[in-house]
Design a protein around this nucleic acid. Structure first.
Lengths: 151, 151
DNA sequence: CACTAACACTTGTATATACAAATAATGTAA
DNA sequence: TTACATTATTTGTATATACAAGTGTTAGTG
């Protein structure tokens, strides 16, 4: 059970509020490293994976860029280029919306769905591993604290 | 008190373990947005700020790149370029180490120290604000849960 | 001493993020 | 219907991150 002070090699204890901010940041990096390195074997980034899952969630209904952005964890100032890369990989398709030609309609392809199906159990296992040191009760508590933290 | 499901507009509840991973990620982004936008007014990024604080912590003892990397939250695959940018701003100096010419010696300048002195109370206030919705006891609990999470 | 491996850092390439400006389509008001 | 603002997306520029390859220096071996 490594304390934050050991991780960043701080000689003096870090004040509680600063420590909380750093602890959340470090935990996030730690988790993203794990899932990111799994996804790397499948040649997609965490962010691209996220977009794919959002599109699958639409179940065939077209998504425009705003839809995707609204559902993303990090608000993403550049979903255009993220979608571009998924198109190059054949995982996604984009058409201009004929009803409103300013908009685009983005769909996940069969290949995209197939990739997600392959990844689902692997990512689920990774999430289970990442959280295996806490009991269900502790996990609920952690989620409640984070939600309260943000107001 | 916004639940994660509302934030990412998920129609169905997210399983506990996945939710925990996402909740930590979202909390981190939320906090980094706040501190990042403060630092932006002073023309440095969170990462550059982090390097400056590490150098101040050395109290005049030279730091090489590995020292800095060891103390950084995100292990940073490219401290060279981060230091390059701080040098351009006159906040940091770099010399080759004469004892071992493979190494470098990096120092914070007077201007760098002055900037940090100016930022200290502002960042402290931001951290206080970011964590103001939790009591001291809850913050301790949150830190304990995060530490236990990582083993 | 030459040869080789290890070390410390730098550079190159690709992706993601932040913000601003540009473009194109649509809506609105005179 | 023209003019102007708004909307939806794209493009440009800068920073940060990830990983691999390259450079120069030092250490170790015969």
């Amino acid at each position: 059970m490594k304390e934050l002070e050991d991780i960043i090699k701080s000689s003096s204890p870090i004040p509680l509020r600063k420590k909380t901010v750093l602890n959340i940041a470090y935990s996030n990096i730690w988790m993203k490293d794990v899932t990111g390195s799994i996804l790397k074997n499948f040649d997609i980034s965490s962010e691209q994976f996220n977009v794919l899952r959002i599109l699958r969630g639409k179940k065939g209904i077209p998504a425009n860029l705003q839809d995707i952005q609204n559902r993303m964890i990090n608000k993403m100032s550049n979903t255009t280029r993220l979608v571009d890369k998924l198109i190059l990989k054949g995982l996604v398709e984009r058409f201009t919306c004929e009803k409103n030609r300013r908009k685009v309609e983005i769909f996940i392809t069969q290949d995209g769905l197939k990739l997600l199906k392959q990844l689902d159990p692997i990512i689920e296992q990774a999430e289970a591993d990442l959280t295996s040191n806490l009991t269900e009760t502790e996990l609920v508590q952690l989620n409640e604290l984070l939600t309260k933290l943000r107001k």
